[in-house]
Design a protein around this nucleic acid. Structure first.
Lengths: 247, 247
DNA sequence: CGTAGACTTGATTAGAATCAACTCCAGTGG
DNA sequence: CCACTGGAGTTGATTCTAATCAAGTCTACG
């Protein structure tokens, strides 16, 4: 057994991985996935743990297996802007340099599939299709960052809130994994506190709270508890959000 | 002569190209650059010309040889946010899909080095180092987009203006090519109108104007004409901009 | 010289930030 | 079991910043 078992175990870890077919590793087929499983390690983190520091070097590159991670930038005077939210199957870490462009912090408990940069880079060079997949992912992140730029630059508080809820609706399956499948599709949960919603949308917790209350008062959403809501009038929400569809 | 000349010409076009050593094509050495020069065509555009439409398909992928291009998103009600500015040596077009994520419009007259998507993709697949270079570029764009998110979400009008000026200072050599090298380094020109600065910074032209005036009144900058300024007190500007350095 | 577009400046208003209570839990310990 | 505590969230009153509305100036150009 010893001498064979470890190798089988490694492959199993990928075969049973919940994000195997959604994360960047789906660029590698069964015959090549071993190159990644050979060099990966799993790590469990708790809400509040800090994974990466802006402008500091780190050997970590990772795929998120579960949980939510926020990417932030902090101004000299302490103000914090959330510049991205990552969930299951997203990847974490600068793919082309050891220096991180953002702080990364766990919003919930998080499970990571970790690689050492040098080793991951070697697999990348050996598998151009993996690097292509990484490019696709980065282009998609760029698209989303630019959409948030428009939200931050042009929308009012109510519009921001509506956009956020619609965005959360689409992303919710990655964010809140253990939902009852029988629960109506129109129910969504917030993995974020008010403070974090505010940090993402460029407003204060009071303004977030007021606008959630207003949407409720207008019959557009229902508040189930402070961390979950039900959508009552999606078309109205889309109209407020100034969005054509839910791209 | 005919039969040989064209081939030599092609190579010359890259050899004499002003951005040959700064754009993504610098990933290819002298022995491979021919693969690109064989499939490129130059195109001259005028200020105001629209190059790409958001969510529409285009066969174009291009490198900017000179001029400034703005990337924008437009809301259903007509409001426009600038989500990126491209200048000499930047590349233009979605590298992984024919569908553009933004509108692209010429701010000044522009010279493009154009490729047909399918042909460029083939060169990309044959030269992984070129795809890696494209990934580096995209990661850099993503970093910048996220920095703008922080500007849009957290900074006040004066702070935004200071950031913009410092950013322009760094980028100015790409934006305003024909500057007298003897001109002091502290003189910069705006390739953008007030309306476009406003569209980028998420404010109105009046607020832009007022804040430029205020910086002048405070002795931090001088207005040479409405399209160029001189920096008088860079440290003060950096302090207002809430920036550690000029990353 | 006259006009239109780009820019500036002033007066007023609207919307979000700020300041300040207050409610609603979840967890703790007596 | 209940009283305390502290964190999270809500709501109200006030302030402040930037948007809006409204003239103006300046400049390039026919």
């Amino acid at each position: 057994m010893p001498g064979i078992e470890p190798e089988i175990e490694m492959d199993l870890r990928c075969a049973q991985c919940p994000v195997r077919h959604h994360a960047i590793c789906n660029a590698l087929g069964a015959s090549n996935i071993g190159e990644l499983s050979d060099i990966m390690t799993h790590r469990n983190l708790s809400a509040g743990d800090i994974i990466l520091h802006q402008d500091e070097s780190s050997e970590l590159f990772a795929v998120i297996m579960s949980g939510v991670v926020k990417l932030t930038q902090i101004l000299p005077d302490g103000r914090e802007q959330i510049v991205g939210l990552l969930a299951a199957s997203d990847s974490l870490g600068n793919p082309v340099s050891s220096v991180s462009n953002e702080n990364a912090e766990c919003v919930t408990d998080v499970q990571l599939c970790c690689f050492r940069r040098a080793q991951f880079g070697a697999v990348l060079r050996a598998n151009p299709e993996l690097e292509h997949r990484l490019l696709e992912q980065t282009v998609s992140d760029l698209k989303q960052a630019r959409q948030w730029m428009t939200v931050l630059g042009k929308l009012g508080a109510q519009e921001k809130m509506a956009r956020f809820i619609l965005w959360l609706w689409r992303e919710n399956h990655n964010m809140c994994p253990h939902r009852d499948p029988r629960e109506p599709d129109s129910t969504i949960c917030f993995p974020l506190k008010r403070e974090e919603i505010a940090g993402l949308l460029g407003m204060t917790i009071e303004t977030v709270s007021r606008n959630i209350s207003k949407l409720k008062a207008d019959g557009i959403i229902d508040l189930l508890d402070s961390k979950s809501i039900a959508l009552r009038d999606v078309p109205k929400l889309q109209q407020i959000a100034q969005t054509y569809d839910d791209e």
